[in-house]
């Protein structure tokens, strides 16, 4: 395990960029940023925007129920958070001051359960964790992503950036080769998107269900025939963080629909 961690560390630091958060040469200019929904068909975009037909709303509704649920704990989420979660998801991932760790929404929800509700962690990718995440994310629907890099989070940002730019797998492809250099082009009938996470958790046609950004990252890794990381792993949280900073300004769209 230690060897594995050391190996991972080498992997992630071997091509770290310089300390400043300067955008790399091939980065997409802010004015050219486009959400994944820009690459959908008109019909799918309409479905995403339909407050009755979007299938992701089933998870949002389930999340709303769980948010006020007190059957397993003396305190529900709503007992602490009333209207205060509007816009919050737009600033995630962010630093958890107590543990000094970078956390995403899913991890924040599980930390809340442990610290304030005396409840066990929800399994990553479980319907309940997806539902609560979608419910919280949906309260920021339309809010621009605003994720900052601070001295405390710089290492995570750099780790995520290194992951984005490191070729991997049997196909030896890095994220930037598709999502910075070739977005808008066609892979057979599909248009390559810019690879933003602002729609997740999202309903994905390929899954025929609702899933997290980490599940999507897992699919990208297996797509280039790389050994994927575990959903909820720090590696994917760091990458999620890098992607969020890269997408700053795009609106939160969860629950989005994606191919």
């Amino acid at each position: 395990m230690i060897r594995l961690a050391a190996c991972l560390l080498i992997l992630l630091t071997s091509c770290s960029p310089t300390a400043d958060v300067t955008l790399p040469d091939d980065a997409i200019a802010t004015k050219d940023l486009q959400s994944g929904s820009a690459f959908l068909t008109e019909e799918t975009r309409a479905l995403q925007e339909d407050d009755f037909e979007n299938p992701g709303l089933l998870w949002v509704e389930r999340g709303a129920d769980l948010f006020v649920d007190t059957s397993a704990s003396s305190k529900s989420c709503a007992d602490c958070h009333d209207e205060q979660l509007k816009g919050v998801a737009a600033s995630y991932p962010q630093l958890d001051e107590l543990s000094a760790e970078l956390v995403n929404l899913e991890k924040r929800i599980n930390l809340c359960r442990a610290r304030h509700q005396d409840l066990p962690e929800l399994t990553y990718e479980s319907d309940d964790l997806l539902a609560l995440t979608a419910y919280v994310a949906n309260q920021s629907h339309g809010a621009p992503i605003t994720v900052a890099v601070t001295e405390e989070t710089r290492a995570s940002y750099e780790a995520g950036e290194a992951y984005f730019y490191t070729p991997r797998g049997q196909f030896n492809l890095a994220c930037n080769q598709c999502h910075n250099e070739n977005w808008g082009k066609k892979l057979r009938g599909d248009t390559i998107s810019q690879g933003h996470g602002n729609g997740f958790p999202a309903y994905r046609y390929e899954w025929q269900s609702f899933g997290s950004l980490h599940r999507r990252l897992h699919d990208c890794d297996t797509g280039v025939r790389a050994e994927p990381f575990t959903l909820g792993s720090q590696t994917y949280i760091d990458l999620e963080y890098y992607l969020a900073v890269r997408a700053n300004g795009l609106p939160v769209e969860s629950p989005a629909i994606r191919r």
């Binding site: 070729p167 797998g169 030896n172």
Partner: peptide, 21 residues
């Protein structure tokens, strides 16, 4: 960007089922 279709050297994080092929 063109992947190498007949190569096993100097690759990173190759999926277990594809390793060495």
């Amino acid at each position: 960007t063109m992947p190498s279709y007949y190569r096993i050297h100097d690759l990173n994080q190759v999926g277990e089922e594809f390793e060495g092929q």
